[in-house]
Design a binder for these strands. Structure first.
Lengths: 248, 248
DNA sequence: AAAGAAGCTTGACCCTTGTCAAAGCGAAAT
DNA sequence: ATTTCGCTTTGACAAGGGTCAAGCTTCTTT
């Protein structure tokens, strides 16, 4: 189950870190002409500092955004302040799909580190899709993939217990990072314990305790935000049975 | 927050129960020509008996299905048998969107009563979308709406407690039924306690107990599958604060 | 460099919900 | 009509995770 995580635009090689927008934010085999058309539509990238909002729930929706570099979270908030983190996004992944239905963004998108996105004006992508069938198809697939991802999160939130959720979360991060050319078993968490907890339907104390527990078992090494997976197979064992669990 | 529930194709009037597929399974203002084109693509409806699978996870994906009459559940299952119900669908709502990403259905769809669906071959809808921009746009909106719905389920599963989940669930059913011309405060549950529990991330005993609790408070009357909302405002009070909660 | 704030860990306790079990009820089949 | 099976309700108990609180580390800010 390869990279069916967050709406990844492409199985991109991050090795080419200063590649053109075209290569980064882009789908499948287009010919030269189509490439040019697409380039004309994609707005040059925007930079955000850590903590900055890319968009907020309730704002008018005009564009999708693809992460070029950096790290984001998306979240929906309830009136009484409860926050549900709905996803963590890394390079190549798309944000804003929920805004299409109502022309209003349905969640907040916040940079968790200094980041760079490229903007895809939806109207223009939509009409371009009519000229380039493979592009249209690609967009349908992206949206569908997001739905699949969400369903897997539901499975996680509805059926798994704390340890399983955490294990699935770590393995998912690991897998997505390695897809992007980073170490699979040694990485930095970009988000706080509280944000992890919100995503997993747990309190931050439970996240912390569970990480400690994994460490005591010798499965991982936790040094603040620095995580090493020493025995990833043990984590996999935990979530085995919970199929799909690695595609959260 | 009107009918942003399950991917509802249209704010359809169910009063016209034997209307043409065109009227039922159809989007926004198309002209006569476009109507005809669409009619040519939509396959006549298929009937299913209670308990029958419309499709299964893993089967090849070729078509979306719109509920004409009846009631469905969709669910994803893990290898060890755990089932997560991901949605309950009623007339006008769409199933199968998760299959687009991989050309394989990602969930099971099962009729909870004798039902009728119409089939929308996706390839042909896709190409028709290129000819009819408003149809294309409508499809993007439908998929986006499903994503919004899923995010709200995440909020429910991640943040709400049993009573809030149940209340949100009942209010959501109520609202969707009334949209379709049925009584808002007096309805039959088409699904078992276990299926409700699976959807809400609760055990069936908790569902049963919570319903009993609501009844003791005089908020609802429970007679097996027959539910009456006596004081829906009390239920609303329960989920107030949990914004979006009525759009599960 | 110092001070403050924010984030993290850990402990103790408690509450909500899950688990196990038994009994009731209704629907469907014989 | 009777039996059977599945679904539901309810109780007793257990446990997983939440809550509250204290202390600690690290990062920011000045």
């Amino acid at each position: 189950m390869s990279d069916n995580n967050h709406t990844s635009i492409h199985a991109l090689k991050v090795s080419c870190s200063n590649c053109s927008l075209r290569e980064l934010c882009l789908p499948v085999g287009l010919n030269r002409d189509e490439m040019t058309q697409l380039d004309a539509v994609i707005r040059q990238s925007r930079r955000l500092k850590r903590g900055e909002y890319l968009f907020r729930s309730g704002e008018g929706f005009k564009s999708l955004f693809a992460v070029r570099t950096g790290f984001f979270k998306t979240s929906v908030a309830s009136q009484d302040g409860r926050e549900q983190v709905t996803g963590f996004l890394m390079s190549g992944e798309l944000m804003g799909l929920d805004g299409i239905s109502s022309n209003v963004h349905g969640c907040d998108a916040i940079a968790l580190e200094d980041s760079e996105v490229c903007e895809l004006p939806f109207n223009r992508m939509e009409s371009l899709g009519r000229d380039i069938p493979s592009l249209q198809h690609h967009f349908f697939r992206l949206m569908s993939r997001e739905i699949v991802r969400d369903q897997n999160v539901m499975l996680l939130l509805g059926n798994m217990k704390a340890e399983e959720r955490l294990a699935a979360f770590l393995l998912n991060l690991s897998q997505r990072l390695s897809t992007r050319g980073f170490a699979a078993n040694d990485f930095i968490l970009r988000m706080s314990r509280e944000e992890i907890g919100s995503f997993l339907g747990l309190k931050l104390e439970t996240v912390s305790r569970t990480l400690s527990k994994f460490q005591q078992q010798g499965w991982i090494v936790v040094d603040h935000k620095h995580i090493q997976l020493v025995k990833p197979e043990e984590l996999k064992h935990l979530v085995s049975g919970c199929s799909h669990a690695n595609s959260v």
